[in-house]
Amino acid sequence: MSLNSLERTIDKVLSQKESALISEIDSALQNSLKNLESSKSSLQVEYDNIIESSKKQAENLKRQIIGSSTLNARNKELVIIESAIDEIFIKAKEKLAKSNNEKNYEKLLTRLIQDSSTKLGSEIIIQCNKTDLNLVKKLVSQESSNRKSKITVSDEVVDIIGGIKAASVDGTMSLDNTLDSNIESLKPLIRKEIVQLLRGENK
C-alpha cells in the first residue's frame, strides 16, 4: 500500500471517529439537557414541598406562640383576681369580727343556737369565741327556758370570728355553725360575685 493511500485511510478513520465522537457528545448533551429539564420540575416540586412544609411549621409555631401567650396572660389574670378575692375575704372577716355589737348579730346567734338544738337534739354543748361568750350565755338561758332543752355553754372558747360550734353530749355528733364555716361554704358563690364586680360585669 502506498503512503498516500495509507494517509487517506487514516484520515477516513479519523473523520469517522470524529463524527462518531461528535454525535456521542451531541447525544450526551441532549441527554444532559433532558435530565436537567426533568430535574427542574422535580426540583420545583421538592422546592414547593419544602416551602409548603416550612409555611405549615411557621403557622404551627405562630399558633403555638399565640396560644401559650394568651393562656399565660389569662392565667396571670386569674392569679391576680384570686389575690384580690383573698384580700376582700380577709377584710370582710375583719369587719364581721367587729359586728358582734349589732342587733342583727344577736338575732343570728339565736337562730344558730335554735338550729343546733333542732339538729343535734335537746342536750347539747355550745362553744363560741371569747367576745361572744356572755351574749351566748344570755341567749342560751332564754332559749333553754323557751324550748325546755338542756344547752350548756362551754367556758372553753374557740378561735372563730363568730357564730357557735355545737356538739352532742356524748361527742359523737357535732355541728359547725360558725360564721367561718358558713363563709367557707358560700365562698364559691361569693367569689363569683366578687369577680363580676372586679370585671365590671355586674349590671
Binding site: 404551627n60 399558633r63 403555638q64 406562640i65 399565640i66 396560644g67 401559650s68 394568651t70 393562656l71 389569662r74
Partner: peptide, 8 residues
C-alpha cells in the same frame, strides 16, 4: 397539648 398551643 401545651407545646402545640392546643391547651388553650
Amino acid at each position: 397539648l401545651e407545646e402545640s398551643g392546643a391547651l388553650k
